[in-house]
Design a protein around this nucleic acid. Structure first.
Lengths: 233, 233
DNA sequence: CAAATAGTGTCTGTAAGACACTATCCC
DNA sequence: GGGATAGTGTCTTACAGACACTATTTG
């Protein structure tokens, strides 16, 4: 501890003199919803039902969030909020930006640090029965409170950047997959169709081929790939 | 105000129940120091002298920063700290990230939101006489407190990204300049030499040529350019 | 003239995009 | 064989990087 600077800031005022804001975290937990009948794979976002006492004029769904506790890092607060509110274990929450409009929350002075986290759809399957969570397809027409729509936009943009140059940096696929599987994920993230030949040549160097082919599908069986070490870069 | 949710969070606890962190801003105000005798143009960072009561084991220089005041946005706090600590008017503070290690500041629980801002060297000239500020060349061997070295690295990286694809997004040059001037700035930001022919062809489409040539220099006079509208993109 | 800097012509290698073809499975 | 999907050959275009040349000034 610094003996000279007993809780004083650079301006010489004691820290306790300043009013302090509440600091919250809000998380866009994104996933790729697999293709169903008539729909191709698409982005999804985890929403949680807001408890009755905090429901205002807006709809009852929101991004999971919580207030930062003392002695806790932001990432820890994000993981805690995902666990408590949705029973989901997050992975690598990544900061997007701080929302700092002093009037953004009518409950008081609340800063919110927006985060992005990503989980494979399988890991979210268990939420299917819970009435307090949902996975909404994007773009969503739901009305969300605070800056949550802006957070989702930022998160989508960040995710697109990450997937633009790497096969599966966030682990949306599991141990083995075909290049078609991977392309479906990329098309969902990018929000547009990708050419199969160009895509293959772009990704093939960063994948590790497995000694097996996909089974039980139509057409010529495809080579299976795994995540190579290079993906971490 | 929301009548139903009288200062309660989503978990039903009153906001006042939670201890709140102090929130600070720290700013990497960067510039490009023009070429002198024997040295080419290079990046510089504004440092301010820390007042005696806050000086700990580390050296007496730090990035300018302050605590966030009530009712203030982060950008406003950044501008205020630049004005108060260095007499400088900042431009467009941009968030880099939140430093959130609970133990990062031994004065207490302090989150710091790191920012990047940029000023042309001319606008910093007036600081020359002040003993409480300095513009340090980068990379600096100074020992700085807290996470300030990490902030500078982040800021440098961000600046490189911005200048990689645009002529002068942050206004490091004034109304008119030659492509050589512009290249000197880019070499300072990138930290390496750039080829003059490739650089010219990369930038020329985003510049607006002025009906004049540079005077008072050696060699063939160069065309002058201004910032075109496209630079805002 | 020489020195110095501005600006251009042009070749090379790489890579994305696009089209068309071949390959191999299931029914 | 027909349908479906996997995978490749190859052409075009674009563009960064590099080298060498020409252009225009000052001293």
């Amino acid at each position: 501890m610094n003996e000279n600077a007993v809780f004083r800031d650079d301006d010489g005022r004691a820290l306790a003199d300043y009013p302090r804001p509440s600091v919250a975290v809000d998380t866009a937990l994104m996933t790729v919803i697999p293709a169903g009948e008539g729909s191709s794979a698409h982005l999804g976002i985890l929403l949680v039902r807001r408890p009755p006492q905090s429901v205002g004029a807006l709809a009852g769904w929101a991004l999971p969030g919580t207030f930062l506790h003392e002695g806790e890092t932001l990432a820890e607060a994000v993981r805690r909020s995902l666990e408590v509110k949705a029973g989901v274990t997050g992975r690598e929450p990544q900061q997007l930006r701080v929302f700092d409009d002093p009037a953004r929350d009518d409950r008081g002075w609340v800063l919110s640090v927006a985060h992005l986290d990503v989980l494979a759809f399988d890991d979210l399957e268990r939420l299917r029965e819970s009435p307090n969570t949902r996975i909404a397809a994007l773009p969503s027409r739901l009305r969300l409170p605070y800056d949550h729509l802006a957070i989702i936009d930022l998160a989508t943009e960040r995710l697109r950047l990450e997937y633009r140059t790497h096969p599966d940096p966030r682990g949306l696929l599991h141990e083995s997959f075909t290049i078609s599987d991977l392309r479906a994920v990329h098309e969902a993230v990018a929000g547009r169709e990708l050419q199969k030949d160009t895509f293959r040549r772009l990704m093939i160097d960063e994948l590790e081929s497995l000694p097996a082919a996909a089974e039980g599908r139509r057409g010529r069986p495809a080579q299976l790939f795994g995540r190579s070490e290079r993906q971490a870069e």
